[in-house]
Design a protein around this nucleic acid. Structure first.
Lengths: 208, 208
DNA sequence: ATCGACAATATTGTCGACAATACCGCGCGC
DNA sequence: GCGCGCGGTATTGTCGACAATATTGTCGAT
């Protein structure tokens, strides 16, 4: 049961895993075969993914993977900058002692990962830090918007994580965020988060 | 042609016009009759509106108008606060002289409307000011998110505009935003916008 | 009178078939 | 040779019918 939900989740996961190239056409019949589903389910999934901003559809022509231009990626990051700023502020205002310690632990492991040159581990910790902040902030709307924006950024995000030397810079920005939250300083947390994402935007512009 | 798009637009407009009560059920057959469309089109529209956050659907049970609680309205406004802050900043950075003058004109008409006690006119000018700022900022992603959030707020927004005496307070907040944009001061524009929406949030909390 | 099971009804979920449209290659006229 | 129109094919759009499920109403036992 709930075949359409399954198709939606699988297809979205596949897109987020980068299994489709930007502007690649998504033919309904092909998706039907791949996911062993009816066109009905596939169609519903495509409509949902269109609303999600992951695919674009043209009437009577079909669906394709939406290409996110550099300018658009920058715009997305600018919105992320202020919304994650809000999240950082709320996290600083609401963190329990246990949650603060959890963030501090992530920070220590980040330093270790950078020292050991473990890029994959650092990237994982990075995602974990931002996720923890979202959990602590308990701001459903903000979290939802970040999830929405993040989905459109996967490709650029991936490119970013491969820029050599970035972790050495960003580890201190992350530390500043953690320190502000641990100190329960909302202003400082928002400022630190915005500075961090400002640097992400700079790096983004430097890639192509 | 494009029957589903027509149904989507009409239904959305009807919801935004407040023709349906929160938690009111939306039976597919009834909508078919009302909009003279097939279930196919109605269904597509409902799915789109679900993604839009205007209706909620439960499997095998149906669709209903989503009720936005006060807490949720506050969360929405908090996100609006930072995103409109971004928009105000960008507007200050990008406004042409003609655009700045347009904003100033709106500000003058606002003062007039308040002095004359014309609530409807003021409310209209308020919407126009925010819309102009969005146009000037030219930030598609931010504008899209604001549109998305605004749709969910219509009911509360309406309640807000009926609070007596609010216009006398907010007109000066609006003036501060306009002044900052005219002065091309991004920091001041963001600060003024955030202060303005902070006061909206306060008023929101005071309503029930 | 109250509760539970069961039937009747209302509503949504799913599908396959057909229609409409766009894309591509071919042939015809110039 | 080149442009233009014309079909053929691939793909999506739309619908009506039926299945699955939830809700409501009814009846009987206690």
């Amino acid at each position: 049961m709930a075949a359409d939900v399954r198709v939606l989740e699988d297809l979205k996961a596949a897109i987020l895993r980068g299994e489709f190239a930007p502007r690649q056409r998504l033919v309904e019949a092909e998706l039907c075969e791949r996911f062993d589903a009816s066109r009905f389910s596939v169609r519903a999934a495509l409509q949902a993914l269109e609303a999600d901003g992951l695919v674009e559809r043209q009437r009577n022509i079909g669906a394709r993977i939406r290409e996110i231009s550099l300018e658009e990626a920058v715009e997305i990051s600018e919105v992320r900058q202020v919304v994650e700023g809000l999240i950082a502020r709320r996290a600083a205002e609401r963190a329990t002692d246990a949650e603060a310690e959890e963030l501090a632990a992530i920070g220590r492991r980040m330093h270790d990962a950078v020292a050991a040159g473990e890029v994959g581990e650092y990237s994982e910790l990075n995602a974990r830090l931002h996720a923890s902040l979202r959990d602590i902030a308990r701001h459903e709307k903000a979290n939802g918007i970040i999830a929405h924006l993040h989905g459109q950024m996967v490709r650029h995000q991936f490119a970013l994580s491969r820029v050599p030397g970035r972790s050495k810079v960003s580890v201190w920005q992350h530390q500043a965020i953690i320190d502000a939250v641990v100190a329960r300083d909302g202003d400082a947390a928002e400022t630190a988060m915005r500075a961090h994402i400002a640097s992400v935007i700079e790096a983004l512009r430097a890639i192509p």
